[in-house]
Nucleic acid binder design. Structure first.
Length: 495
RNA sequence: GGGUCGAUAGCUCAAUGGUAGAGCAGCGUCCUUUUAAGUCGUUGGUUCCGGGUUCGAAUCCCGGUCGACCCA
C-alpha cells in the first residue's frame, strides 16, 4: 500500500485507503471470501407480510448506494442484481461497536446484512438490521447519485460504473440477456439443436464483408475471424442435424457507427425440409414469445419516429420490386430485361436525390433505392420477398423468375432485422454463384463447403437475426453501443 | 477516411481574454422512521496533452490524444 498523505480530507481515495488500513490494523479483513445471501432484494420485498412487522428474517447483500445518517440510526440502501432495498441500522440493535464501524462505511462498499422485514411510516418495506458485515471495501468513489454517469466515454470504458449508477442502463442490458434466453427457449421448444462452430476459419465465407486476420503460430498459418455462421451450420445439415442454430459472435473489419460494432452477435437458424416460408412462421413465433414473456406487450414504441410498432396480427408481405416501383413512381421493374434498365434505374435513383457511383452494378443502384428510400419507411413488421438474386448468392432461385430468389428480408422499425432464405442446395448452381461473387479471387471460395453440398444437403429454410439490432428495436436504444456491454473503443490507458 | 462538436474538482455542470465557482460526494459537527433526508462549518484544480498569440489564456490560434454526431 502506498504512503498515505497527512491531510487526506479532500482525497477520497486516500480516505478510503486509510479506513482499509485501520481495519486491517484492527485485525479484520474487509475483503471477505464469502457472504450468505438468502434473498435477492426484490424477493425480500415480496416476502414482507402486511402487518407482520419484524417476523420475516432475511439475509441480503449488495453495494451501498445511499446513506442517510441520522446520528444514532441510519437508513441506507443496497443494490443487488434485482435492484435496491432499504436497510435500517439502529445503534440499540447492532450495538455500540458495530454501529461506530457502520458509520465509517462508504458509498460503494459491499456489505452483507441480516435482519427482519418491516414497513416504515412512509410505507417502504425495509430490513431492520441486527447484524452486518463489510465484505468488500470500495476504494474509489461512485459517480454522483442524482445525475449518474453521463460521460459517454466513461460509460463505455467503465461500464460497471454505468451499471451501478444508471438504472436505465442496467435494465436495458439485462433485458438483452432475457431476450437471448427467450430465443433459446423458443428454438429448444421446436427441437432445434444449439451448436458452436469455429470462430477461426481458413476461409471467411457466408457473407461479403472484410474479415479480421490473425495468425496461428504452431500451424504457421493465417486465420480469418468468421464473418457469418452460415457455411458451418449448413455442413451440419449435410451431417444430419435437421434443425440447428447458433448464437455467436461474428467479426467484420469495417466502420463503427451507431448501427455497427466490429464484433456483433448473430443468430442463424437452419431447418431441413422447410423453406423461407417456414422461417416466416419461426420468426413470428420468436417475436410472439418475446412480446409475451420478455416485453410484456405486443406493441413497442419505435424510438426514432414515436410510432407504435404492432407485432400482433398479420405481418405485411411485399415484393421487393413492388416497393421499388412505388418508390420511384413508375414501373421500373418492367424494364429489368430491357437494354435501358440501368439508365432508367440511375435516373430514378438520382431523381430521388441519391448518389449513383459509376462502378456500381445495376442491382446495386436499385438496392440503393431500397436501402435509402424504402427500408427506413418500413416501421411495421414487413416481409420483403422476391429479391434480385445478386443480393444473396446462397439462396434458391425462384421457379417462376430465375432472376429472383426465394427469400425474405424482415424489416421492422426501418431496419433490416432478419433475412431468411430457401437455402441453395444445388452444388452446381452454388459454385456458379460463388464464382460470380468472388470474381478472380478463388482463394475466397469455400471449396470444402461445395464438397459438402456434393454429398447432398436437404432442402432447408435458413434465417439470420442480428441480435444487437433486435435489442435496439426492443429496448428503444439509440445506438448499438447501448445494447453491447463492452462496445469496441480505441484502446486507451486508464486515466 | 472526411466534416461538425466536445474534454474544467471523484461525479454533474458554471465561469465577457482579467483572482477558476456551484450542487452532489469527501472531511468535521448536530440529529433514533429518512426518501435527491435535513443542519452548521470546511477541504479539494497539471482547466485532456504540446506549442503559439497576448501585459495577461479554461477562453483566441496551430498540432496531437480520446469521445460524440453526421457523411463515406
Amino acid at each position: 500500500m502506498s504512503e498515505i498523505p497527512q491531510d487526506i480530507s479532500h482525497d477520497q481515495y486516500a480516505v478510503r485507503l486509510k479506513k482499509l488500513q485501520d481495519m486491517r490494523d484492527a485485525g479484520s479483513d474487509p475483503f471477505r471470501a464469502s457472504c450468505e445471501q438468502t434473498h435477492f432484494s426484490a424477493v425480500a420485498l415480496q416476502a414482507y407480510v402486511e402487518g407482520e412487522e419484524n417476523t420475516v428474517p432475511v439475509k441480503v447483500a449488495g453495494r451501498l448506494v445511499v446513506i442517510r445518517d441520522m446520528g444514532k440510526s441510519q437508513f441506507v440502501k443496497i443494490l443487488d442484481q434485482q435492484g435496491q432495498i432499504q436497510l435500517y441500522v439502529k445503534k440499540d440493535l447492532v450495538g455500540e461497536e458495530a454501529y461506530v464501524a457502520f458509520k465509517r462505511l462508504d458509498i460503494g462498499d459491499i456489505i452483507g446484512a441480516e435482519g427482519t422485514l418491516f414497513k416504515t411510516k412512509t410505507g417502504e418495506v425495509t430490513v431492520r438490521i441486527e447484524k452486518y458485515t463489510l465484505v468488500s471495501k470500495a476504494l474509489r468513489p461512485l459517480p454522483e447519485k442524482w445525475h449518474g454517469l453521463t460521460d459517454a466515454e466513461q460509460v463505455y470504458r467503465q461500464r460497471y460504473l454505468d451499471l451501478i449508477v444508471n438504472p436505465e442502463s442496467r435494465a436495458r442490458l439485462m433485458l438483452r440477456s432475457r431476450i437471448v434466453a427467450s430465443i433459446r427457449q423458443t428454438l429448444a421448444g421446436r427441437n432445434f439443436l444449439e451448436v458452436e462452430t469455429p470462430v477461426l476459419e481458413g476461409v471467411a465465407g457466408g457473407s461479403a464483408a472484410r474479415p479480421f486476420v490473425t495468425h496461428h503460430n504452431a500451424l504457421g498459418t493465417d486465420f480469418f475471424l468468421r464473418i457469418a455462421l452460415e457455411l458451418r451450420l449448413k455442413r451440419l445439415l449435410v451431417g444430419g442435424y435437421d434443425r440447428v442454430f447458433e448464437i455467436g459472435r461474428i467479426f467484420r473489419n469495417e466502420g463503427i457507427s451507431r448501427k455497427h460494432n466490429p464484433e456483433f452477435t448473430m443468430l442463424e437458424v437452419y431447418q431441413a425440409y422447410s423453406d423461407f416460408r417456414g422461417m416466416m412462421d419461426l420468426i413470428r413465433a420468436i417475436f410472439t414469445d418475446l412480446c409475451r414473456d420478455v416485453i410484456g406487450s405486443f406493441e413497442i414504441k419505435h424510438a426514432a419516429s414515436g410510432e407504435m410498432i404492432n407485432f400482433a396480427g398479420e405481418w405485411r408481405v411485399a415484393r421487393y420490386f413492388e416497393l421499388i416501383d412505388a418508390a420511384v413512381g413508375f414501373p421500373l421493374s418492367a424494364l429489368r430485361q430491357s437494354a435501358d434498365y440501368r439508365a432508367k434505374a440511375t435516373e430514378a435513383a438520382q431523381t430521388l436525390g441519391l448518389d449513383v457511383h459509376a462502378g456500381w452494378e445495376t442491382f446495386e443502384i436499385v438496392n440503393e433505392i431500397f436501402s435509402k428510400k424504402i427500408e427506413p419507411t418500413l416501421i411495421q413488421p414487413t416481409f420483403v420477398t422476391h429479391l434480385p438474386k445478386e443480393l444473396c448468392p446462397l439462396a434458391k432461385l425462384n421457379l417462376e423468375d430465375s432472376g429472383l430468389i426465394d427469400v425474405f428480408e424482415l424489416c421492422i422499425g426501418g431496419m433490416e432485422v432478419a433475412p431468411a432464405y430457401s437455402e441453395q442446395n444445388d452444388p452446381f448452381v452454388q459454385r456458379q454463384m460463388f464464382e460470380q461473387q468472388v470474381g478472380d479471387d478463388q482463394q475466397k471460395m469455400d471449396t470444402d463447403f461445395l464438397l459438402a453440398l456434393e454429398h447432398g444437403m436437404p432442402p432447408a429454410g435458413g434465417m439470420g437475426v442480428g441480435i444487437d439490432r433486435l435489442c435496439i428495436l426492443l429496448t428503444g436504444a439509440e445506438s448499438i453501443r447501448d445494447v453491447i456491454l463492452f462496445p469496441s473503443l480505441r484502446p486507451n490507458e486508464a486515466k
